[in-house]
């Protein structure tokens, strides 16, 4: 045993460090439930901002919902927006300070329910902002009520017998809707349930920020996420449930990448 501890102490040296949390991540303990995807996504944002060296230029807009306290966890400038209005606030910030890197961070109740108008019109105007959309198919903070993105048949506290399309309508695929708009430069749907998925999601977030640098339209990243408290499952079971039920309805991958399809589609805005 002593030999093992000695060997571990030999490995734990600064020169052998492979991964440590980004210096942009504050030391506060996150208020999220155990296993919440918000923590992973906010860590990825911090890592991307650190890698791109844009800490001084970045301004995030936080929503209302579980991630309302996102401003506590990353050491950049933040602005809190009213419920659903993050894209409108982000638009104002970007137009007043075009040199800043502006992103909005929203959940599905914020972006796809109360903020649908702001979201669609901000993308349709082609605002040069990054929009991050965390879709966990439920209102997590208020107690697991049905959201527009809730799957058909999914049990929530307001649909105890499952979502019924006759009464509650169909799940809203807002990312597919946004991909149709000419103002969107990059639209993708990712997940953070495995290490490989986390690495792909990080690349997507990085690409979204790079696209903002090019001034060629809105970059929209949806993260299909879990809500273990709202779904009444353990974090590991939530990931399995998400793979089995969410991914068939919300398939992962790029929905729109104007750069790849035709570089001419990139609109360069006059300053």
């Amino acid at each position: 045993m002593a030999c093992v501890i000695e060997k571990i102490n030999e490995i734990i040296a600064p020169e052998n460090l492979v991964y440590a949390k980004s210096p942009l991540t504050n030391d506060d303990i996150m208020h999220y439930c155990p296993g919440c995807s918000h923590g992973v996504v906010q860590r990825l944002i911090a890592e991307v901002i650190e890698e791109m060296g844009i800490q001084e230029q970045s301004i995030g807009v936080t929503p209302v919902g579980c991630s309302v306290f996102a401003y506590k966890y990353i050491d950049i400038d933040w602005q809190e927006a009213a419920h659903g209005r993050a894209p409108a606030v982000a638009t104002a910030i970007k137009r007043l300070m075009p040199e800043k890197m502006v992103f909005s961070y929203q959940g599905d109740g914020d972006l796809a329910a109360i903020g649908t108008a702001e979201t669609l019109h901000a993308v349709n105007r082609g605002e040069n902002i990054v929009m991050l959309f965390i879709n966990n198919a439920i209102y997590g903070m208020t107690g697991g009520q049905m959201a527009p993105t809730t799957l058909v048949g999914q049990v929530t506290s307001t649909t105890p017998f499952g979502r019924n399309v006759d009464i509650n309508g169909y799940p809203l695929k807002i990312t597919d809707l946004i991909a149709q708009l000419p103002g969107a430069a990059y639209v993708t749907r990712q997940s953070v349930h495995t290490a490989a998925a986390v690495r792909r999601a990080k690349k997507a977030i990085r690409k979204a920020f790079e696209i903002q640098r090019l001034n060629c339209g809105t970059a929209f990243v949806e993260i299909v996420a879990t809500c273990s408290s709202g779904w009444k499952l353990s974090p590991v079971e939530s990931n399995k449930w998400m793979e089995e039920n969410m991914f068939p309805h919300y398939p992962l991958g790029d929905l729109k990448d104007s750069k790849r399809a035709d570089s001419g589609l990139y609109r360069i805005k006059s300053k």
Partner: peptide, 19 residues
């Protein structure tokens, strides 16, 4: 030291060392 654990950790509480 594959760092898969730190990639999925929501609370960024894992540091990984590899030799």
């Amino acid at each position: 030291g594959c760092a898969n654990c730190s990639a999925v950790c929501p609370d960024s509480c894992i540091s990984v060392y590899r030799l």
